[in-house]
Design a protein around this nucleic acid. Sequence first.
DNA 1: CTGTATCCGAGTGGATACTG
DNA 2: CAGTATCCACTCGGATACAG
Lengths: 136, 136
Amino acid sequence: MDDATVTAPAPDEDIDLAYDVFARSCPSRHTLEHVTGRWGALTLGALSENTLRFNELRRRVDGVSEKMLSQTLHALERDGLVHREDRQTNPPRVEYRLTPLGESVAERLLSLIELIEGKMPEVLAAQHRYDGRRPA
Amino acid sequence: MDDATVTAPAPDEDIDLAYDVFARSCPSRHTLEHVTGRWGALTLGALSENTLRFNELRRRVDGVSEKMLSQTLHALERDGLVHREDRQTNPPRVEYRLTPLGESVAERLLSLIELIEGKMPEVLAAQHRYDGRRPA
DNA sequence: CTGTATCCGAGTGGATACTG
DNA sequence: CAGTATCCACTCGGATACAG
């Protein structure tokens, strides 16, 4: 991938428009999708509580398949949000933890998740109203 | 859909575990996906700045198709995050705006988005390191 | 302008089996 | 335990055409 596809920020200026998620070619979109994607969000959430091993994560993130968890972890590791530590022991023991960057991302993500969880009664009420008006 | 599939909260108690996004059957997962999904996040972000009409949204959310925008807006409206107002005029004029609930969700979402945009240099550096170690 | 309907390819994602 | 590899169903999502 080419990383120069976006409005190139002059290194000696502080441009706050450097990365704009609203632009379709901005690399921040990919990272945002890793973070907010179906399994990315839950994985970051789980790791914000503890360092976890692969199968511990699988159990914590209810419903994720091996394939998706593996894929998700690779993407998050590549983005520098998750650190993978292979203890090289027998039996194998691999631990996943958040990097400092991952922690700050997870913090804001969890704030969003908790808000939504707390507002679910309102959301469900809205859904019922909507479905009632459009019974099709 | 059945809305009683989750740990039913006793109406007269304040249980903060009532909706747990980590449980695969929790309805909050659907809402979280609408909010954080590829187009949901950008749509909420765009509407947090202004009330917008359909085609204004299409232009703001660079790359979205009519179909996806329509679908996204329906989901967000159903969840009670977006209000749709049809002016019933000719030519047609339909405005989309955030509800109060939508605003609080968008606020936290934008906080996350802005963090990621700001950290993109770190993320890209991490990606290069990762790709360098695993050139395959 | 504001959408819906249809087609269709590309990617998602689950189940299973297998390797180290 | 910690994954990878493969198969395959299904959905996503874009392009296009059309409707109110």
